[in-house]
Simulated scan of single mutants.
Amino acid sequence: MPSAAVDDYLKTIYHHTEWQPVAMTSSQLAAELALAPSTVTEMVQKLAAQGLVSHRPYGPVSLTPAGEKRAAEIIRRHRLIETWLVREFGYAWDEVHDEAEVLEHTISDRLLAGIDERLGHPRYDPHGDAIPDADGHVHREPFVLLGDARVDHTGRVLRVSDRDPGLLRALESRGIDVGHTVTVTGRETVRVDGGTTVELPPAAAAAV
């Protein structure tokens, strides 16, 4: 099987449980990858035969230790490349995802190690996602999803999902990006850095 295809499946499963504990179903995997359920079922069976995922009929799909290690390796590549593009080439945080999707499959291990060293071995990418170390280990701070935070809850923005570039731009225009402090003032409003109260763009509650 093409390595890139395998990596895309493993990354998607990894991402699903990175910020919440419920395992992914085959139908969710198909929807996320925009593929036919039958295609996904066939691929999941092949991945299971390789020892990369654990799956039973009509049950969830989860990574085995081998699958998690491989997923962490490609995610490390992706997130280091995103960080490199922002710091060294002036890319905005909403521009790097697609570039990294291409480059993660092409750069050598030597170049990746050089990028990591030049950047000072960063622990987080521009969106606040943890960068696995060379052994696949990650460090994440305790967090609460913005949509689950009570009114008057104050917290520092740890991570913003990079799935929607338009949402990233809308959040940045309101001062809501990694490192800033927000206080929940209502179901659809927050106060940023103790100052201005702004209205949240659609989907922000599930992305911050």
Rank of each mutant, 00 (worst) to 15 (best):
55 H>P: 00
65 P>N: 07
197 T>R: 07
184 V>R: 15
8 D>E: 12
60 P>W: 03
27 S>C: 04
44 V>E: 03
133 D>K: 14
27 S>G: 03
14 Y>Q: 13
157 V>G: 11
137 H>K: 13
208 V>N: 10
136 G>A: 01
179 G>V: 12
137 H>F: 07
100 A>G: 11
5 A>S: 00
169 R>S: 07
173 S>W: 03
22 V>L: 07
203 A>Q: 13
114 G>H: 12
7 D>N: 04
5 A>K: 01
94 D>L: 05
99 E>H: 07
67 G>I: 01
78 H>A: 01
135 D>W: 04
120 G>N: 07
59 G>A: 08
55 H>A: 11
207 A>C: 14
53 V>P: 08
133 D>E: 10
123 R>A: 08
111 L>I: 03
85 L>S: 10
53 V>E: 12
131 I>H: 00
150 R>G: 00
131 I>K: 06
194 G>V: 03
45 Q>T: 14
184 V>I: 13
174 R>W: 09
38 S>G: 00
55 H>V: 05
186 G>Y: 06
107 I>S: 02
108 S>W: 02
123 R>S: 09
169 R>M: 11
177 D>K: 10
200 L>C: 10
58 Y>H: 13
11 K>G: 03
102 V>H: 11
19 W>I: 08
1 M>N: 01
3 S>H: 07
16 H>I: 00
74 I>H: 10
103 L>T: 10
200 L>S: 11
